[in-house]
Amino acid sequence: MNVALFPDVVVNGETIPSAAVAAEAQNHTGPRDKPGIAWRKAAQALAIRALLLQEARRRGLVPDPMELAPGRFETDEEALIRALLDEALTIAPVTEETVRDEWAKDPARYRSAPLWDVSHILCACDPRDNEERAAAEARATALLAKLDGDAKGFAAAARESDCGSKASGGHLGQLGPGDTVPEFEAALRKLDEGGVSPAPVLSRHGWHIIRLNAIAPGQVLPYEAVRPKIAQALEKAAWARASRDFIETLAAGATIEGASLAPI
């Protein structure tokens, strides 16, 4: 990213150098062909941080860093922002009625984790090696083209897998959320029972051909089991709304150059 193409951010006369925005941009996502999006997100985040710190200092707040983990403490700036939000925001308690109303909208949303019975064929490679990755993908694509579509045909093709599961026809057994790498699980969730991934799926281990043999949907959980989770989600949403409203109030009375607080 060419920093010279992007301006400094100025919040109420306080300058945030473009170099600082460039460093912050590494923490934000954006399309590779549109680096300006990550930059705008970074500029917005730093502008909001500056607004909050200016308000905390205006109120005379003093940082009192909390211990986040053994030996790891907040920075003074993080402590100031936390103290400001604690002082400025008033969040109405989540009532039992509110929680129950949220649950009643669709009780089926709250289920235990599903179980997937899965088989796969692995064409192993180091994804960082372009030549090796391409060769493994070609091999996986050729194997996929030979599949009959049924479990028996899949098990036969799995003899060529690079995974130890080839001894059992590629069968991995029953898996739940978090039991596999994210790329594998994301592809698995898109399959219908008995379905095979339409194209090889790349993970850190190589290219996978995935078959969802069967699925056991999670059971709907009783209200009492999910009540704490719903209450926590409602409190978090209320806090986020109140924080957004507070920042908008600060921004309305501020002079900001080089950044926009509009949604990106």
Rank of each mutant, 00 (worst) to 15 (best):
T249D: 01
A145H: 02
A20P: 02
R189W: 00
A124P: 08
D106N: 11
R72Y: 05
A259I: 08
H171C: 13
I264S: 07
G206F: 01
E257G: 10
A158E: 07
A47W: 01
L188E: 04
A254R: 01
E185Q: 05
N213E: 12
V21M: 09
D117T: 10
A22Y: 00
P70F: 02
R111K: 10
A259Y: 04
V226L: 04
K166M: 15
V181C: 10
P93E: 07
A42T: 02
W239M: 13
A251N: 11
G194D: 07
A113M: 00
T90V: 14
A23G: 12
A38I: 04
A43Q: 08
A25E: 00
A43C: 05
R59N: 03
R133C: 15
L188I: 06
I37R: 06
E78G: 04
A167C: 14
A138E: 14
V3L: 05
N12Q: 02
D129R: 02
V226P: 03
A142H: 06
C123K: 12
T29M: 05
K236M: 06
T141Y: 08
S203T: 12
T75N: 00
E257L: 02
R128S: 15
L191E: 05
T98P: 11
P200V: 01
V94S: 01
E185K: 05
E257C: 05
R159I: 14
R128E: 15
E67P: 09
L61E: 00
K146C: 10
Q26D: 02
G253K: 03
A43K: 08
A56T: 06
L212S: 10
E132Q: 15
S203R: 06
G176A: 01
F184Q: 12
T75R: 00
P63Q: 11
L52N: 02
A238C: 03
R32G: 11
P65W: 04
A156T: 11
I81G: 03
A108Q: 01
P114A: 12
T95H: 06
K152E: 14
A231K: 03
P31R: 04
R49Y: 00
R57A: 05
L61K: 00
S260V: 12
C123F: 05
L53C: 05
I121H: 13
A104N: 09
L80Q: 07
S168R: 09
C123E: 10
S165G: 11
K229R: 08
H120R: 09
L122C: 15
L46P: 04
Y223K: 06
I91H: 07
R139H: 11
V21Y: 03
A237S: 15
K146W: 00
L175A: 15
S119E: 15
W116I: 07
R59A: 01
D33V: 09
E185L: 05
E224R: 06
A83R: 00
P63V: 03
E14I: 06
I81Y: 03
G60Q: 14
R128P: 14
A237I: 06
E55F: 10
H208W: 03
E77L: 01
